[in-house]
Design a protein around this nucleic acid. Structure first.
Length: 198
DNA sequence: ATAATGATTGGC
DNA sequence: CCAATCATTATT
């Protein structure tokens, strides 16, 4: 994974992430999943983005840094969400990773999610089907905020099974308000994949 | 200092 | 459909 990879335009990067592996290595072991769903958030002009109108706070700070780092935040008092910082330093874009197809460390993921083992094929595919679930399954939390996705225990890798087709696109999930941002088709996913959320 | 609210999930 | 649960943010 080269740093230059993250320099492409945000929605193109969101597309390029589909099929790639998100890997997290901890003391408990290795866990990884293939990215099957992403959402682009494009800074100042995007009212759905945390960085809308250039809002720069302790939480959003990493989005203003160089691309290729993790932006992890806590929501609803109980879940974490993991983003890939995009765009050049100073431009606060990020891509929310919304769902993974579990690939490595399935048992560890099930344990972290509080599920039994073994699981049915169907339940296994759902272990990381949502932004909060994926963070829990991979053990991603506050400590991973700001980590480099090139060189750190949390990394992105090209997959042996890249996604080469045309992604499905649609409006982003769970964003409030009623402005034009509601309709932007910046949610991308692998069509009909069983690990996609919702 | 206080109040409102969430880029969600799981249970009824 | 709705409650859980608390950090973050804006406001006083």
């Amino acid at each position: 994974m080269e740093a230059a990879f993250f320099e492409q335009p945000t929605v193109e990067l969101a597309r390029a992430l589909l099929g790639m592996l998100l890997v997290h290595r901890t003391r408990d072991g290795l866990a990884a999943g293939r990215i099957v769903e992403t959402e682009a958030y494009q800074g100042p002009q995007d009212e759905a983005a945390h960085s809308y109108r250039g809002r720069r706070t302790p939480r959003t700070e990493v989005m203003f840094g160089p691309p290729g780092h993790a932006y992890v935040y806590f929501v609803y008092g109980m879940h974490f969400c993991c983003n890939v910082v995009a765009a050049p330093a100073g431009v606060p874009h990020a891509i929310l990773v919304r769902a993974l197809e579990p690939v490595v460390g399935l048992r560890l993921m099930a344990q972290r999610r509080g599920r039994g083992w073994p699981l049915s094929k169907r339940d296994t595919l759902r272990l990381a089907s949502g932004p909060g679930r994926l963070c829990q399954a991979l053990g991603i939390g506050r400590d991973q905020n700001g980590l480099s996705l090139v060189h750190s225990p949390l990394s992105l890798r090209h997959s042996a099974l890249p996604f080469t087709g045309l992604p499905a696109t649609g409006p982003r999930v769970g964003i409030a308000g009623s402005g034009p941002a509601q309709a932007y088709p910046w949610r991308l996913w692998i069509p009909a994949h069983p690990s996609v959320s919702r």
